[in-house]
Write a protein that binds this DNA or RNA. Structure first.
Lengths: 294, 294
DNA sequence: TATTTCAAATAGGAAATAACTATCGAAAAT
DNA sequence: ATTTTCGATAGTTATTTCCTATTTGAAATA
């Protein structure tokens, strides 16, 4: 049994004629005859009594006609379903992001996106660039936002909003620092753990400035930006961290920035698997982020 | 788009594998590949992301899977539908019958049949054998009960219960008749109209008895058995009519039969169109009537 | 890193199916 | 009686489906 047979059956039933159906479907009349014959054979019953010039549907034909019609229409609707859904932006966005984007960039962007497409919701998993990258490789996310391009052959990377690292400390601390010109290696310094993107960027910057990290006065290594932030606030030392992470504190004066001769730019990337097809809502969010980054 | 593609798609989706699906459906793996490719082409979207050793359904696949499944199952259920319905005896029986069977035979038989199959209902149209025959030829009935085989090449005729015609009149009338042996051509006689089966049978009988109808004392030609019956009762004359039609009157003495040397048998026939397929309830009733006539 | 293994894609060809044209035959209309 | 209409049949051709054999590419393993 085949849907094509049902399509033909429905046309014959409606037209009460094999030849009318053949005109309607642009198929020759003998082909119609054959299909009806096969359908009758597979159902084990006669569908149309051939009465010379006329045909008359049997009660079995009356019975299956509505079902056949529904099947034919449902089949056609599958196409619409795909078309519609691919235009409709809704559903959950499960996104992996490294610390800075996840904490300080995505929330704002997600809110904006939701204004445009109220039917979406977000779940943002925050982890190392390394971990997010691995999860992308394992197809646990469609979309990641990471601080470094680690697998450019497998993943697609597109530039995202930049971040800037600033050298900051508690206000009283920083004022002292500017008055008495202290050696860089004497300043108490707080570090992120290895593997953190912020740490990596900072290292690169220090390297470029020809400062040796090993000689620095590292008073603590902490596992998150927030921990660093709290430590600085209570006067434990200074650190280099994302402007976005301490924007508020810089504003209200609870933290103070020390301008350096060079700015520490850090890029983030939208990462997707080269072989995965993005569902509509991911595609839309991806495009939204790319457009916003220009 | 084809249901076969959906069947294959569903299997691939469930198995999360082209080759597992190929085992399940006893189709080679390349064929599975090709069908999925074609389905993707016709839908205009990717259904499975090929990730080397694994495949992953896209959101479009998630979307259409339940629909596909339902379509495949619905299609299979059409077969069941036909099977079930052909065993189930129910629905309306629209039957054409000539006067005697329609008035005096079918009501009893219909009641018996309904005892056996309570889901049936009857609509019995009573008309001339000629009219019922024409309606059968025009496919206005599946089943007719008529008094003569008029179109044996187009309709199937099967013997049904016989009827007997009796010569009857009002009691006082008949008693006179027996006392004073009157000439047959002097008896006041009531006739049915031409075209009536009763009339035809009677004519044949008279012909066999070598009685000339034209010489008879015809006092009225009436259009129905009941009219004849009423006319006889009020003493207008005598007539020849169905024993079944006047069984009650003969019983209670309001009419009286005069036994003749020969009985006038009349056959009835179940008539069906040779080219029509009988719906289940008609088939069942037909078989019921044939069995009862033996 | 190289090798093996696994799963899907591709190529090429055979079989099955669906389609066509031409024609027949039966019933209905003229 | 003749023509017209409509479905069935016969005989081919085109298309589709499906197969086997092989290749490709990614993941697992040595």
């Amino acid at each position: 049994m085949d849907i094509h047979q049902l399509r033909i059956f429905a046309s014959v039933y409606r037209n009460r004629s094999f030849s009318k159906a053949s005109e309607q479907l642009y198929i020759s009349q003998p082909t119609i005859s054959e299909h009806i014959k096969n359908l009758e054979k597979s159902l084990g019953c006669t569908l149309f009594d051939r009465l010379g010039r006329k045909i008359e549907p049997t009660s079995e034909a009356d019975l299956i006609f509505p079902k056949a019609l529904q099947l034919v229409e449902d089949l056609e609707r599958i196409n619409d379903l795909v078309l519609k859904s691919s235009q409709r932006v809704k559903g959950k966005l499960f996104i992996g992001a490294s610390t800075i984007p996840g904490n300080y960039m995505l929330p704002v962007l997600a809110a904006k996106f939701r204004n445009k497409y109220p039917e979406v919701s977000f779940e943002i998993v925050i982890a190392d660039t390394k971990i997010i990258t691995d999860m992308l490789l394992n197809h646990e996310f469609f979309l990641g936002i990471v601080g470094a391009s680690m697998e450019p052959r497998i993943l697609n990377y597109e530039p995202f909003l930049d971040d800037e690292l600033v050298f900051a400390g508690a206000p009283e601390f920083m004022e002292n620092l500017t008055k008495s010109s202290v050696q860089i290696y004497q300043i108490p310094f707080l570090l992120r753990e290895e593997g953190s993107g912020t740490r990596k960027t900072m290292e690169d910057f220090l390297h470029k400035m020809q400062i040796d990290l090993k000689k620095m006065n590292v008073v603590a290594i902490l596992g998150s930006t927030d921990a660093i932030k709290q430590a600085i606030k209570v006067g434990l030392g200074t650190s280099i961290l994302s402007r976005r992470a301490i924007a508020e504190e810089l504003e209200n004066g609870s933290l103070m920035e020390m301008k350096l001769s060079e700015t520490m730019k850090r890029s983030f990337y939208l990462a997707t698997h080269k072989k995965r097809t993005l569902p509509a809502q991911y595609k839309a969010f991806h495009d939204f982020l790319v457009a916003g980054s220009i």
